[in-house]
């Protein structure tokens, strides 16, 4: 079944038909999400209006991890059996993943400045997100350094798998290290229960970003299939 769909002949037109759906879903869900987040969601009792940065920050953080998970699936597929689509998918994903990781850091910084009075702290979450960005950049650099597509995809998949084993350890080590050195966390532990309006906005934005990723990735894979033919 999977083998069947893993043929470029079926994938190419299918991706072409799915693309507009993802594109429009991204736009519409994004508009709804922004409306919910900026107008309907009530003001936060503690953080005031500044908390609205959450609606771009948190979905970006989710995407930065989700894209890595998808890349790991592609990588395992490539290492186990040949799959052009997985190769293209993997190579195209890293820059989008890096973009979302970058956005997480920048919006987090913009959120942190008014809330904690600083642009950056070497807190566990920030540090591990920064390391994730470096891992993405390493993957991009390795992929770009190898001219042949297949070889690049295989090398990148090896690195992606090694990275995915390492990422939980990185998270754990950074958590441990920062609790040793920064006992007073700046994050509220637990925090207040989230308002349903806020949750709706958050989920809408997350869905919109997910559609964005699939839209662009299908587009990119199609471009690479075409390039391969030429």
């Amino acid at each position: 079944m999977i083998k069947h769909y893993d043929s470029l002949k079926i994938f190419y037109p299918l991706a072409g038909r799915l693309m507009p759906w993802f594109g429009w879903a991204f736009a519409l869900l994004g508009i709804f999400g922004l409306y919910w987040g900026l107008f309907l969601a009530p003001i936060d009792a503690v953080q005031g209006e500044a908390y609205r940065i959450m609606f771009v920050h948190v979905p970006s953080a989710w995407m930065s991890l989700m894209i890595y998970a998808v890349m790991t699936i592609c990588a395992i597929t490539i290492l186990l059996r040949r799959s052009k689509i997985a190769e293209y998918w993997l190579l195209s994903s890293s820059s989008i993943g890096a973009s979302f990781t970058f956005l997480t850091l920048v919006t987090g910084s913009l959120w942190g400045r008014p809330m904690w009075g600083t642009w950056w702290v070497w807190d566990a979450r920030l540090t591990s997100e920064l390391i994730l960005l470096f891992v993405y950049l390493g993957i991009i650099a390795l992929g770009n350094a190898i001219p042949e597509k297949r070889k690049a995809a295989q090398a990148v998949s090896m690195l992606t798998v090694v990275g995915s084993i390492n990422l939980p350890i990185i998270k754990f080590s950074v958590d441990w290290w920062t609790t040793l050195h920064q006992p007073a966390s700046i994050f509220r532990a637990g925090g207040s229960a989230i308002h349903p309006m806020m949750l709706t906005a958050l989920l809408l934005m997350a869905a919109s970003f997910t559609c964005y990723y699939f839209w662009l990735i299908l587009w990119r894979v199609r471009i690479q299939i075409r390039e391969n033919k030429q």
Binding site: I131, F134, G138, A141, L159, G163, N166, I170, V174
Partner: peptide, 9 residues
């Protein structure tokens, strides 16, 4: 570039 971030733990 590849090793340093992964070596943090």
């Amino acid at each position: 570039l590849i090793t340093l971030p992964l070596a943090t733990p």
